[in-house]
């Protein structure tokens, strides 16, 4: 009578196979934990895989026992009363020790990994401070004396010491392919350390519920070759571009100066607002609004006109600009490479 019984686990098993299949032949997973690209994330993926196979083993054995039990011992008319077994001491000891033993094989690598990934980078690591805001990221490079916003640039194959805190509520910094998540907590400093092993663009997002736009608090990490990283650093260190006389960007600068923009944003030499991200080099970024949208003229228009409609709870109020002024501001921002 295996037929009825098999359904029990057929459901999850069939699903698991189906999903594995789906995963294998679907496209890209930019936030997958299964494609680690740093020492930190590789450690975690290895540990997970290790535990996963133990779990699969236990799953198969225990579910098989369960299936055999319900298949073999189905009540049949006229069968003798079952023996009233109350227990079995040796069995009890056995199935107490067996899981205990398996757990040893899980606990040992767990402890080893805990200490291996405790967040302390070797001497000479590049220090990066991550500060969480509702709902965007601020990065400071204290040794390089630059800052970045939402998009983190890192040199490849270099140890990175990340120190994190929050300006408001708790956030969690998570770039799955580079490492596990760590919370950003006001009044505390948390650390992770890793070394990215290949260049590329890595996605991440806030993983601790942090209010209305938690879902919209995304980030990108650009891991670059040393020379590309150095170019980026030089660019960030440079003063923001000054628009040419008579250009649309120049008109935009004037609009920016007389609008509410300056209350919240910094552009070196133009404005010193501290509430929103620094825009000195906003034109050079790939994304805007917490890595929510690509940095295009169209999305900038929409964002400036009505940010809260695109990102609920966003502090930036809708800007009541004439179409010409809006065009000009967008042109100006895009010129700030």
């Amino acid at each position: 009578m295996l037929r009825g019984a098999v359904y029990f686990d057929a459901v999850p098993l069939v699903l698991a196979l189906l999903l594995l299949f789906l995963t294998a032949c679907s496209g890209q997973f930019p936030q997958s934990v299964f494609e680690p690209r740093s020492d930190f994330s590789t450690e975690l993926a290895g540990l997970f895989t290790n535990i996963f196979w133990w779990a699969v083993g236990v799953f198969v054995i225990v579910e098989t026992l369960l299936l055999i039990a319900i298949a073999r011992y189905r009540a049949r008319p006229g069968a003798a009363e079952p023996k009233p077994v109350h227990g079995h001491t040796a069995l009890e000891i056995g199935w107490t020790l067996a899981p205990a033993l398996i757990l040893v094989f899980i606990a040992v690598p767990t402890m080893r990994t805990i200490f291996a990934t405790a967040g302390q980078a070797p001497e000479g690591a590049l220090r990066v401070e991550v500060i969480g805001h509702q709902w965007w990221w601020e990065y400071r490079y204290p040794t390089l004396n630059i800052s970045a916003y939402n998009e983190l640039h890192l040199p490849v194959a270099t140890p990175i010491q990340v120190e994190m805190t929050s300006a408001d509520v708790i956030h969690s910094f998570w770039v799955p392919r580079l490492g596990g998540k760590r919370d950003l907590i006001q009044g505390r400093t948390n650390r992770i350390a890793f070394r990215a092993d290949s260049t590329g663009e890595y996605w991440g997002q806030c993983a601790e519920f942090c209010g209305a736009s938690h879902a919209n608090m995304r980030l990108r990490v650009f891991v670059q070759s040393d020379s590309a990283f150095q170019r980026w650093v030089d660019q960030e260190r440079a003063a923001p571009a000054t628009p040419a006389k008579g250009s649309p960007a120049e008109a935009g600068l004037q609009v920016f100066r007389r609008s509410a923009c300056i209350g919240c944003h910094t552009i070196a030499g133009v404005a010193q607002g501290k509430i929103g991200p620094d825009l000195s080099h906003v034109g050079g970024r790939a994304t805007i609004a917490g890595a929510l949208f690509p940095n295009t003229s169209e999305t900038l228009h929409r964002w400036i006109m009505n940010a809260p409609s695109l990102k609920p709870g966003a502090l930036m109020p809708p800007q009541n600009l004439s179409p010409q002024d809006l065009d000009a501001v967008v042109a100006y921002l895009q010129s700030l490479k």
């Binding site: 369960l66 990994t113 998540k181």
Partner: peptide, 22 residues
């Protein structure tokens, strides 16, 4: 059993850093 086994993957603190809050 399934919930318990995924629980073991959470118990492993480093592994959980990739799983928690997902």
């Amino acid at each position: 059993i399934i919930g318990g086994l995924s629980g073991v993957t959470h118990a492993s603190a480093p592994s959980d850093l990739q799983q928690t809050d997902t």
